[in-house]
Simulated assay, not measured.
Amino acid sequence: MITLTCSELGLLQQRLFERRRELLATLRGEYGDLAGARPPEELGPESHPDETASRKASDQLRTALARHEFDELQQIDAALARVADGRYGACVDCGDPIGYERLVAAPYTARCVSCQTAFEQHRPIRQ
């Protein structure tokens, strides 16, 4: 049984749409070069090895951040699909209600605390 009021659901849905817009703008702007939209800045043969290492570390960090933001975008899209299906606010594993406070903290949350804990304990760690 989902226990969200219409106003709570509306507020959470609005937050999902706002965060989705923010992420899309960031992914298109900040990380466009990672998707091939902008050519990477090349270092010349005279570049210092420290500069090359620094650039490589920076690129790896940007790639990790982009992956994290893309993952969040996918979670938001899944949450919006649950809103459309009338399943938002219910745990995708057990069906119990997800607390409003938990949804306010992370509106794309798909699991109750118990199921999320079990999920995290049994999934492989991604490198």
Rank of each mutant, 00 (worst) to 15 (best):
T5R: 09
C6K: 13
C6N: 15
C6H: 08
E8P: 02
G10D: 12
G10Y: 07
L11R: 15
Q13M: 05
L16I: 07
L16C: 09
E18L: 08
E18T: 11
E18R: 08
R19D: 15
E22K: 03
L23T: 02
L23Q: 04
L23N: 04
A25C: 11
T26L: 15
T26W: 02
L27F: 10
R28K: 14
R28I: 04
E30P: 01
E30C: 03
Y31L: 04
D33R: 05
D33Y: 06
L34H: 00
A35S: 10
A37P: 00
P39V: 06
P39R: 10
E42N: 08
L43P: 04
G44C: 07
E46I: 08
E46R: 04
S47M: 03
E51P: 06
S54H: 06
S54M: 01
R55A: 12
K56A: 06
K56R: 10
K56C: 06
A57Q: 09
S58R: 10
S58Y: 04
S58E: 01
Q60P: 06
L61E: 11
L61Q: 05
R62N: 13
T63E: 15
A64V: 01
L65N: 03
H68E: 14
H68R: 07
H68S: 01
F70P: 00
D71A: 07
E72R: 13
L73N: 12
Q74H: 13
I76S: 01
D77R: 08
A78I: 06
A78N: 11
A78M: 03
A79D: 09
A79S: 05
L80N: 03
L80E: 05
R82C: 04
V83Y: 00
D85M: 03
D85C: 09
D85N: 14
R87T: 15
R87Y: 14
G89V: 09
A90T: 04
A90N: 13
C91L: 07
V92A: 14
D93Y: 02
D93V: 09
D93P: 03
D93A: 12
C94L: 08
G95Y: 10
G95M: 12
